[in-house]
Structures are given as C-alpha cells and as structure tokens.
C-alpha cells in the first residue's frame, strides 16, 4: 500500500529539503517507486537539490488547479528510473494551493507510487498545514538546538491536530530525524544531546545525521547525498533512516567518517 510521508520542521534551514531528497533517493534505491513533492510554493528548492531545475515545465499548482496532467508535471530522475519529482511553482504564492486541489493530487499520486514524500515549507501557515494534511506519516526534522526543538514540538502538536488521520482519531505516525548533529559540540555542551531532544519531543528516533560538509557539496552539484557519495557518514545515516522508515529494525548509531576519525586519532597523538 502506498504511503504519504511529510517532511516537516517548523523552523527553516534545518535540512527538510536535503532530507526529502536523500530519503527519496534512498527509498528508490531500495526498489520502491518514489515521488518527492515540493510544497514550498514560491521558494522552491527541491528541484535544485535533485538536479532537475532545468527540466521543470509544469508544477504542483498547475496540477492542483487542473491546468496540467500529473504525468506532464512529474520529472523522472536521470540516475534512478523509479524516482520522480513534482516541483513547486516559483512564481506563485502559497495561497494558490487549495485543500481540494492538494487532496486530488495526493490521491492521484497514491495510486501511482509506493511512497510519496512531501517537502513542507518552513512555518506553521497554510503551505505547511496543507503539506501535512493528507500524510500517513511524518518525519520531523530538528537540529540539536533549543529553537529548532521548540519549533518541532509546535509542529508535532499541529500534526496531532490538523491532519486528516488525527481528525479521524487514528493518530499519525511520527518520526524524529536529528540533523546537523556534531558529536564534538554535543560533548562540549554547545549542542543538545540526543537524550535531551528525545526527552523534550518524546517521539521515536528515525536517525541521526552527522553534520558533514559533503551534504553541502552534494546539494551544490544537484544530487541527493546518498547518490553523490554513498560512502560518506550522512549518506549511510540517511540509508539507515530510510530502512527504519520501512520498518527494518536497525540499531541506532552515530555514523562518522573513517578519515576524520583517523585525523582525530593522529591529531590527539601529536598534541
């Protein structure tokens, strides 16, 4: 059965779009037919992260308003044939989205894909509430710092109140994805620890993505991190998270790069 997943956070710049691209690509690599949908109307980014910005013709708004067919707007990934992107419009604003339009698009996507990942805009307004409205599960992205965690807490409250599943009394499956995690800074007390964040948010942990410069490099070249450099720590962490999202029981760990461990080791010896 197909699953609609919303990637949301409340706060901007915590890694929603990067995570959407990475989880989408990881799930597609596992053999699922995946669509990633950009809900950030007016400030679209997912097309850049996926490297599809030169091929955008129609977008979510066109399909939602019935001006284009879904298959005309979907962009097939050049690297993974079972990964598709539904881009957002850059010229319109979020008021152009209606609940009826979004519901129609989501239902049509449900019939065609195993997994649909919706990249929510930041904030708690219309764009964000519509992105989560029809979701079966939510990936709440947070950085280990207090403002991000509080905003995520707010979003969890909205997930429990404003989604169709919640209104039907079924509740919605929620997962925490902790991004930009820097073990060194946590140890120095400059960042919240995993335990602190889990204590505040009290939802199950999907994965810990280490802070790593490869993530920025990947988005600059327009490739999801798991395709750009599958061996790097964040790519492995996203692959684990994608498997957990499918119900695979993997032990939680904080991935780190062998190289930097080496450097740390020698650095300490030299000091």
């Amino acid at each position: 059965m197909s699953k609609i997943i919303v990637v949301t956070s409340g706060k901007g710049g915590v890694g929603k779009t990067t995570s959407t691209g990475a989880l989408g690509a990881a799930l597609a690599q596992q053999g699922q037919k995946v669509a990633v949908v950009d809900f950030d109307v007016g400030l679209r980014n997912l097309d850049l992260v996926m490297g599809a910005e030169r091929r955008v013709v129609y977008d979510l708004i066109n399909v939602a308003q019935g001006d284009a067919k879904l298959h005309q707007a979907l962009i097939r990934d050049k690297r993974l044939p079972n990964l598709f992107l539904l881009p957002a419009s850059q010229t319109r604003d979020k008021d152009a989205l209606t609940e009826e339009g979004v519901e129609r698009v989501i239902n049509e996507l449900r019939g065609r894909f195993d997994c649909v990942i919706c990249d929510s805009p930041a904030g708690i307004e219309r764009g964000a509430t519509l992105a989560m409205r029809f979701a079966d599960a939510a990936v709440v992205v947070a950085n280990p710092e207090i403002s991000s965690v509080r905003d995520s807490d707010r979003i969890i409250g909205l997930l429990d109140a404003k989604t169709v599943h919640a209104e039907n009394g079924e509740g919605i499956e929620k997962h925490l994805l902790l991004t930009r995690y820097d073990a060194g800074r946590v140890a120095r007390g400059e960042m919240l620890s995993v335990e602190d964040v889990l204590e505040i948010l009290s939802i199950p942990l999907l994965g810990i993505i280490p802070d790593n410069e490869e993530v920025l490099r990947a988005s600059n070249v327009g490739a999801p991190i798991v395709l750009h450099n599958a061996a790097c720590a964040p790519a492995r962490a996203y692959n684990d998270a994608a498997q957990r999202l499918c119900g695979v029981d993997l032990p939680m760990c904080i991935h780190s790069d062998q190289k930097s461990l080496f450097r740390k080791f020698f650095g300490r010896r030299a000091a």
Partner: peptide, 26 residues
C-alpha cells in the same frame, strides 16, 4: 495522557488538570 506541545493550551477552569507527560516550552 499526552505531552502538551509548544503552542497548545490546556484550558480547564472547572477543576484540576493532570498531565501524564511534559509541558513544552511555549
């Protein structure tokens, strides 16, 4: 029986409130 999330208000002027969970900042 659930944590009270940031932005939520529990308003119960009639009597006692028991929360089995935490009250978030905000």
């Amino acid at each position: 029986n659930a944590p009270v999330r940031s932005g939520q208000t529990i308003y119960y002027p009639e009597g006692d409130v028991t929360v089995v969970g935490s009250i978030a900042s905000g």
